[in-house]
Amino acid sequence: MMSGTVLINCSPKRRLSASGFLARCAAGLIRGEKRVLQLRTPADHPAILEAIRTAEKVVFVTPLYVDSLPSHVLPFMQKMEACCRENRLRLKVYAIANNGFIEGRQNEPLMRVMENFCARSGLTWCGGLGIGGGVMLNVERIMLTVLLGLTALNVVLRAAQGESPWEPLRSFAVSAGELLLLACGIIALMLRLAYHVNRGTDAGKRYTRIMVPSFLFILFADIFFTVVSVLQGGIFRGWLSRLKPTGGCEPAVSGKQ
């Protein structure tokens, strides 16, 4: 008996990935039996293929790399195609893709690859959700988690000194409200996608984004990468320069002389 949903987190990052966060959010909204499995290396393939054999629905949750799926996901899809054909699996497939740019629509080429994958594999493509500003969403939710910890500490210290705890709680509530506002499109469309996954119906393709004007988003992104580059030292190592190969680790290159 086929039942349940397998959510495949396609991020190569071990932890703190936007895709992992979105996969856990989606799992929280999907009813019935569900499993979130991470696809990082070929060693993860057997467990995921085993899980989909008895599943009814699969949700790929993936970052966008160079306009498509990350390269490490593609060999898995080839294996999954063979597995589905061999075992005549009739899964319903959904996708949640996120990219660092503000426009969720930049996930369109990835969605088409997913649709073609389903057609080749004999599976039912049920649509997906493309999210713009995934990195910003991830940074915001990590900062909110840190802020929650600091707020709790602040409340305890204030209580110990006999002061009112409301000020730090109010401050945290404002920050949480801001994040919910920024992510309102993502939340609404995640709820919509989960509704279709629960019913096993076609969700179509939808695109959304962090609710920030793009020029502000670019400003925030530039500030973020500048700060990180200062902290990691890249800004002092030819940050924006036309760097030439050092010759130490060039690929297997050949060419006419």
Binding site: K13, V228, G238
Partner: peptide, 15 residues
């Protein structure tokens, strides 16, 4: 495969 760490931007540019 790419690890998605962005360090080719932030730590060792273009490497």
């Amino acid at each position: 495969p790419c690890q998605g760490c962005f360090r080719c931007w932030t730590r060792h540019p273009a490497a």
